[in-house]
């Protein structure tokens, strides 16, 4: 996509709002539509758009595949770890009431943390899957589009 100047400029303009919006969706999921699943997908879309403008190599310089695989596991571990933490604090698995001095605050914290875990795993999974497909690409000719 090296010579599609307009597409490249517009896509570059779109990148910061996409990432900002993903963060908004991640942290505002308690009060409006949104949450970890959606935010993760939007984050991954930002990375994929970056790869489409600058090439897959540029993306692997920004997020090395090794880091992606670590993040993939880290999100799930954050989720399960929250469950273990509540167990150690004397409550049931994934009963967030134990996380703070009063139960409602604990629930709010717990929901934020596990949503973050979900977001990290989904974003890493989608980006990694894209890289797996793109890494094999027989290059797509312009006439094919």
């Amino acid at each position: 996509m090296q010579h599609h100047l307009i597409l490249r400029v517009v896509a570059r303009l779109l990148l910061p709002p996409i990432f900002l919006y993903a963060l908004y969706v991640q942290w505002h999921g308690d009060y409006g539509p949104g949450g970890g699943f959606q935010a993760g997908v939007i984050f991954a879309v930002g990375f994929i758009l970056y790869a489409l403008i600058n090439g897959v190599d540029a993306l692997t310089r920004v997020v090395p595949p090794r880091a992606l695989i670590l993040l993939l596991a880290a999100g799930l571990l954050l989720y399960a770890g929250t469950g273990i933490a509540t167990l150690l604090l004397g409550q049931d698995f994934l009963d967030y009431s134990a996380l703070s001095h009063d139960a409602v605050h604990g629930q709010e914290w717990g929901i934020l943390i596990v949503e973050l875990g979900v977001g990290i795993t989904v974003a890493a999974a989608m980006t990694a899957i894209f890289l797996a497909f793109a890494g094999r690409s027989a290059s797509v000719e312009d006439k094919d589009w």
Binding site: P33, G35, G36, I111
Partner: peptide
């Protein structure tokens, strides 16, 4: 304490 019931049910 979460007004979005979908998020509350989903995560908690």
């Amino acid at each position: 304490g979460v007004p979005n019931v979908v998020t509350a049910v989903l995560a908690s």
